[in-house]
Every structure is written in structure tokens, then in C-alpha cells.
Amino acid sequence: MTGRQPRQVAVGIEWPLAGRRVVVTRAVHQADKMVELLAARGARPVLYPCIAIAPPDDTRDLDQGLKETLEGDFDWLVLTSANVVQVLRERLVILGQGIDDLAGVPVAAVGPATAAAARLQLGLEVDLMPEEYVAEALAEVLQPIAGSRVFLPQADIARPILRDELVKAGADVVAVTAYQTVVGTGGDDVHGLMARGAIDAITFTSPSTVANFVTRYSSEGGELRGLANVCVASIGPVTTTEARNRQMRVDVTPPEHTLAGLITGLETYFSIRGTQRAESDPFVERHG
């Protein structure tokens, strides 16, 4: 990639992302925060929603799990994404329950974004959260007592690792599909912008954004080899693995698996473009 030099947007201050077009692949209802963070750094967000959520074909298992949780039949409610939180809120309303009726239920969350959503949308304070925001770490810190019941609502394409590890620890896990992940639509003409060399970076915040980007972009006539001239940034190791499995080169995987960490990683990447990368740099991955 023939990167441009960092822009000067204020006297004496260099903003590495200023003026750069950065593709946001998050779902429409989740894109605002990342758009806000990018714009605050002077970037030009390009919206290209690659995922959308849809209700499961059958909500009976989800509703039954919610009812049992409300009745105190579970020892833990495990939340793995803000999408799950949103769905639980919607189902509570449909079932005629108050959105704060889950108060008092012990809650574990995979990361701060999910914890914030639980607090805002359900009035829940999270009791447990791992230091590394991935399912494996959540399973490790939860350490359920043998025989304890765990309610695990999740996406239809969720990795089985969390459920499997909790079961291995002796928990009675009720894992249900809370929502389906489908390919998103709308947004900007990324294919056209890519063809003109007008995209600087593309961001992925989950394995499903990667998989659905490939599906959507290919269906619109795009070729993945065009990403060779674009910075590919992944929020964490699981997403990075998915991208590499799809034959993508990943340039940025931040040590802090959050949106803020991802933006910081992008800034670091563009600030050192054209210079020799220090071996100790924690943000920029090396290849070859």
C-alpha cells in the first residue's frame, strides 16, 4: 500500500487518521459508536453493514429460558454480546415483563461493551467479566460449581467453546439461539470506492463481520485481492483467525479487544507507515 502521510489538522498536532476513509462493517444499530470514535480522530467513516440480526425461527426455547431465569432457576446468566442484551430486552417486553425484572440475577459478560449494554438496556450490573474479552477467558473465570445452572442465550453461529468448557466444568448449561446473524445491506459503495483506491482501511469487529463481508463484497463484484492495498484491522484474535482463514492479510490486532483499542491500533499503524516498524510495537502485526 502506498500510504499517505499523516494529515495536519490542528496547529502542532498530527492526526494519523485525519482524512482517511475507514470502512465500518458493524450492523447498522451498532455502528454509531465506532463512527463517533473515528470521526473524533478526523477519519471519514464509510458505512458498509455486513451483518444484521433477525429473530430465531422459533423463540420458544429462548422464552422458556427467560421465564426460568426470572423465576430464579439459574445460577448464572451469561451474556456474550450487546446483541444478546438487545434481544433479551425485546423478548421481555413481548412476554409482558418489565425490562428491569432480571435485576438480582448473577450476570457474567464477555467484555465491557456487553456489560455497558446490560446496564443501559436491562438495568443489570455485571458480576463477572474476564480480563481478555473472549469466550475462552470468560469460561475460565466463571468456574461454575458442579451442578450449577447456566443460561446462555447466543447467536445461531456462536462458537461452541464457551458452552463446552462450562459443561466440562460440571455446569448444567442451557444454550439457546437468541438471534440469527444474516448478511447486512445498504451503506456506501465500497466496491466502487475500492476500485478507485479511495479506501484506506477496513475494520472487522467479529468473525461474522469477516465472513459476511466476504459474502457481500463478492456478490457485489468485489475481489478480495483488492484488499492487498488496504489496511485490514481486526478487533481481536478470534476475528483475526477468521480473516486469515479467508486468505486475508491482517495488519492490526490490538492487545485491548475493544473499539477504542482498535482505533488506537489504526492510529499506530498509519503513524508509522513508511518507517521501519519497531519489533516491540504491540499493535501492528508482521508477516513474512
Results as ranks from 00 to 15, higher is better:
Met34Glu: 09
Glu36Met: 07
Ala43Ser: 15
Pro45Leu: 15
Pro45Asp: 11
Val46Asp: 11
Leu47Gln: 15
Leu47Ser: 12
Cys50Asn: 08
Cys50Lys: 04
Ile51Phe: 02
Ala52Tyr: 01
Ile53Ala: 01
Ala54Met: 09
Asp57Ser: 11
Asp58Ser: 12
Arg60Asn: 09
Asp61Pro: 04
Asp63Gln: 15
Gln64Trp: 07
Gln64Pro: 01
Gly65Phe: 07
Glu68Phe: 02
Glu71Ala: 15
Glu71Asn: 09
Asp75Arg: 13
Trp76Lys: 13
Val78Gln: 10
Val78Lys: 12
Ala82Val: 02
Leu88Tyr: 05
Arg89Trp: 10
Arg91Thr: 03
Arg91Lys: 03
Gly96Pro: 05
Gly96Ser: 09
Gln97Glu: 13
Asp100His: 15
Asp100Cys: 08
Asp101Tyr: 09
Asp101Ile: 07
Gly104Pro: 02
Pro106Ser: 13
Val107Phe: 10
Ala109Lys: 04
Val110Trp: 05
Gly111Val: 02
Thr114Phe: 03
Ala115Leu: 04
Ala118Met: 14
Arg119Gln: 13
Leu120Asn: 05
Leu122Phe: 15
Glu125Arg: 11
Glu125Lys: 06
Glu125Asn: 09
Leu128Phe: 01
Pro130Asn: 06
Glu132Thr: 11
Glu132Met: 06
Ala139Cys: 00
Val141His: 00
Ala146Leu: 01
Gly147Thr: 06
Gly147Val: 11
Ser148Leu: 00
Phe151Val: 07
Phe151Met: 11
Leu152Arg: 08
Pro153Arg: 03
Gln154Asp: 03
Gln154Lys: 09
Ile161Asn: 09
